[in-house]
Each structure stands twice: as C-alpha cells, then as structure tokens.
Design a protein around this nucleic acid. Structure first.
Lengths: 146, 146
DNA sequence: CTAAGAGCTAGAGCGCCCTCTAGGTCAAGC
DNA sequence: GCTTGACCTAGAGGGCGCTCTAGCTCTTAG
C-alpha cells in the first residue's frame, strides 16, 4: 500500500518541512511516536510519506501545547491498535483539551499581571524621565507595580 | 508553635502559602531570585516578610508564564539596583509580555486542532458504537480526524 | 579517484528546573 | 535524656526533551 510514490521524503526534507531537526525525527521514531513504521530504502534510509508528515504535524501540535512525549506515545499506540478504542483516544484528547484550556487561562492571568506592571512602568516613565520620584529602593519600588 | 509577629514567616509557612517546596525556595534564593536577602533568625533560620512572599508570587507568575529563571534573575537584579533602570525593566517586561501573548496564540491554535479532533471522535462515537465504520487501520484512521 | 554531503546507529551529553540526600543544629514535648 | 520535627548547607541526582558525537555507508559531483 504505497498510495503515493510521488512523495517519498528524505529525513532532511521532512526536517525542513516540519521544523524538527533530523535528530529529533530519529528520536521521535525511537520513542515510538510515529503511527506506522517509517519505510526504508534498500540502503536503509528513511522514506517518509505525506501521512507521516501529517502525523508529525499533529505531534508537533501536541508537543507545543505541552503534551509530554509519553502521552503522545500512548495516543500513538491507541491509533496503532486500530479501531475499537475510540473512547480511549477521546478521553486522552479531552484530557489534553482541558489541560490546554487551563494553560491558556493561566497564561491569561499571568498576562494580566504583566500587562499591569508594564502599564505602571510605562506611565512612570512617561510622567517625567527625571527620577525625582522613586527615591527609595525599598519595598515600594517594585511592589507598587504589582 | 510559631505564631510570629504579623510578618515573619518560616520557610515552611512560605512553602505552604506559595505552593513552592522548601527546596525550591532555597533554590530560588541561591539562584538570586529574591529581591532582597532573606533575613535570618539568630539561629540561621530564614525569616520571610510579606514582601518576600509577594515577590515570590510574582516570580511564580513569571515562571508559570514560561520566563526562565535566568530572566527572572535579570529582572531581580534590575530591581535590586534601584531606581534609574526603569526602561530596562520595562523592556524586559514587554518582551515577556510579547512572549506570553505568542504562547497564548499558539495554544489557542493547538486547542482548535484538538477540539476538532475531539469533535470528530465524539461524533463518531455518538453515531453508532458499532464499529462498522473505521475498518481500515490505515491512513484514514486518524488523519480523518485532523 | 576523491571529496563532499546526506544518511545510518548507538549512545553520551546537555540545559533547565527543580528534588533529594547526607549530615548536622536547635527547640519543644514526653 | 531522648525523640521528633523543622530547619540548615553543600552538593548529588533525576526527569524531560532533545542534541550531538563517533564511526560508518552511500551517492554524486568534479
């Protein structure tokens, strides 16, 4: 089943497309993160399909939203096992969805704090570059901005 | 029994309040993340002030929004140096603000992908638990959900 | 014929951020 | 007096996610 011979990509090409390093690609493979085993040329070189690239794209999304490699492997295993475990996949995805949502919330909270500090400093700097204010390096220095 | 004066907290109490471990608190201190040196009792034990706790709270916000310890240390150094470097502090904060904004964007994108997959699986599971569909464990298995 | 360049494997190394251990002090309670 | 528990220091250890090295094979261009 080689749907498209037309696109058989070398590891270097996949690295370029995905932004992952060749090292990372081999590493991901060793770690069992690829849905199906990468084909090899007669000389042993990896040949990636478009599906592989798509899958890697999904892995990258998972990773960049903080899913540990271990969890990606679990998901991959489920998919590899084939039909019948969709509720497990769904549970895993939902769990991650919750996690990402929580992360966004957390970051949004942090952003509020940071933005507030930025505003305080901006205003402080705008209102007189002369440093007549701010004479005490004590507690008020920064906590005023918090 | 350590009901101190209104402000004078042991490392254990600070750990409890902040959620950091006592190890982490000592580690942060070693790493120069505290605005002013922690006071000590005569016996050498740390005594934290409310300001220290506030500062730590800010560090935690920084950390949980992905600021490396190194950057927190730089910020701390600026604050410790006292007035006169507000534009530097502001630059650092703005830079982090951008970073956090980008992270939120990234996570939001990931969440879209994940939510889409969740929807696909939900629909699939809702529409017949019988697994008459989904017969091929080949490419369509998961990429259909992507 | 040679050299460059891409690929291969196995495994070591690294950066970050804690976390834990060893070995000790001190204060309070039984 | 002895144990318990919170604290101390210095430094080792560990998890994660890559990244890099060593030593090799091929293929291709000059």
């Amino acid at each position: 089943m080689v749907p498209r011979m037309s696109t058989g990509l070398s590891i270097g090409q996949v690295a370029e497309r995905t932004g992952l390093s060749v090292h990372a690609l081999r590493f991901y493979e060793r770690e069992g993160l690829l849905a199906d085993p990468v084909r090899r040329e007669s000389n042993g070189r990896r040949v990636y399909s478009e599906d592989d690239v798509d899958w890697l794209g999904m892995c990258i999304k998972f990773r960049s939203s903080g899913m540990p490699l271990d969890t990606i492997r679990k998901y991959t295993d489920l998919v590899r096992q084939g039909p019948g475990n969709e509720q497990d996949r769904l549970a895993l995805l939902r769990s991650h969805q919750d996690h990402v949502t929580a992360q966004i919330q957390e970051l949004t909270d942090c952003l509020d704090v940071i933005t507030h500090k930025v505003d305080v400093y901006s205003r402080h700097l705008a209102a007189g570059t002369a440093d007549c204010l701010w004479t005490t390096p004590s507690s008020s220095t920064d906590s005023a901005a918090s």
